[in-house]
Computed example of a mutant assay.
Amino acid sequence: MYEMADQSWRFQPISMAPAVIDAIARRIGEHARIHDVAELEVILHGGEPLLAGPELIALAVKTIRRAVDVGTQVHVIIQTNAVLLSESYLRFLAGLGVRVGVSLDGYQAAQDRHRVFANGKGSHEQVTAALRRLTTGRYHHLFSGILCTIDIRNDPIATYEALLEFDPPAVDFLLPHGNWSTPPPFRDPESMRTPYAEWLIAVFDRWYGSTRVETDVRFLSEIIRLLMGFPSRTEAVGLSPARMVVVETDGSIELSDILKSAYEGAADTGMNVLRDSFDAVARHPGIMARQLGVSGLSSVCRGCEIHTVCGGGLHAHRYSDATAFDNPSVYCLDLFRLIDHIRRRVAHDVAMTRSER
């Protein structure tokens, strides 16, 4: 978020005030009652959420859970870079029943390419030590998975296998944020090359070809689900409606914070939990645009044979200064090649299974 086009973080409080936490809890409870919500998920992230400290984290979790009626289950996940994930923090999070997602970009050289301290020293050693505390003892049940941002300079198989060392229940590979006006690294909009597809195909073949289930690679398993006719559970692919909002530290309610990669104010709704309900946000044009399914895609996407699987890609990745979001993803060619590869591989296996009956 610190390097995105939207720099509004500079004017936000570092952490939430108790009054904002109270308002968030009240809005969540209100929304759950009105819509008879059986389960909801709250993700604490940043920045680095562990910097808020145990007292504020406990206040947020307990206040939100108290605000919902009996019968509504609140799942809380904290997404952390794990540098501060000590034994005492794990014991504290276990007591709260908060699950932990960790950001790790792979083996040492891969992790330390981007994730460094202010003095330039890499974070791999500290993060992997924290992951071992989380995954090899009594706290493994808290582990929700690993978030890994793709850098195509890193070896895909070595990256994947470095993540597997920690027995993650799930791995999320994220495409670097960018768009047609500000392209992501190594993605030339004028080129027919598909470097991100090549990287992900290597991971797919290694993961899919394993003789045992090693983990759930969510981006790839969601594509398989979509090819089989099931709805997507992520905004990265497919046409399922967006079902989340972001609340900033001052209480501002925003659209997906990934939109901040597009332009200043792209995620703004003009609403705040101190005065607005989540139902009011649901009527915001930016939210409604992400509920339109096929009709919300560009004409180029609607004419594509895989549009129900690709879903036009992540909404933020469609942006250009000239035509706003009325475009395919800047990763269009990569997504097409990846999905086509997965489709062919899965179709072959289905045909082989049928022929053996």
Results as ranks from 00 to 15, higher is better:
Val100Lys: 01
Ala60Met: 15
His35Gln: 07
Gly178Val: 06
Leu142Ser: 06
Met271Thr: 05
Met352Trp: 05
Lys121Ile: 04
His307Ile: 04
Ile43Tyr: 00
Ala162Glu: 08
Ile64Glu: 09
Lys62Thr: 15
Ala316Met: 11
Gly97Cys: 11
Leu90Pro: 00
Arg233Asn: 12
Leu40Met: 08
Gln111Leu: 01
Ile14Gly: 05
Asn327Val: 07
His315Asp: 11
Gly265Glu: 08
Thr194Leu: 10
His35Gly: 03
Leu85Glu: 01
Glu39Ile: 07
Glu305Asp: 15
Arg233Tyr: 04
Ala262His: 02
Leu90Thr: 00
Asp326Glu: 14
Glu30Pro: 02
Arg233Pro: 09
Ala162Gln: 08
Asp257Gln: 06
Arg357Pro: 04
Val20Arg: 04
Glu165Val: 04
Leu274Phe: 09
Ile224Leu: 08
Arg132Pro: 01
Thr149Pro: 14
Ser181Val: 02
Arg113His: 13
Arg344Pro: 07
Ala38Ser: 12
Ala118Phe: 01
Ala347Arg: 02
Val68His: 08
Tyr263Gln: 09
Val83Leu: 07
Phe278Met: 01
Ser320Thr: 13
Leu292Gln: 15
Arg218Met: 08
Arg26Ile: 03
Ser123Glu: 00
Glu214Asn: 09
Ala158Cys: 03
Arg206Tyr: 08
Ile24Trp: 08
Leu259Phe: 07
His341Ala: 13
Gly47Ile: 00
Arg91Cys: 13
Ser191Ile: 05
Arg357Trp: 07
Leu96Thr: 06
Glu254Phe: 03
Gly97Lys: 03
Phe117Cys: 01
Gly251Leu: 06
Asp6His: 09
Arg132His: 09
His141Gln: 10
Gly178Glu: 13
Glu39Tyr: 06
Thr323Asp: 10
Asp36Ala: 15
Asp321Tyr: 03
Ala32Val: 01
Cys304Trp: 04
Cys148Asp: 01
Val330Leu: 09
Ala324Leu: 12
Ile258Pro: 00
Ala262Met: 02
Trp207Glu: 00
Lys260Ile: 01
Val76Arg: 10
Arg290Ala: 10
Tyr196Met: 08
Asp36His: 11
Phe186Val: 14
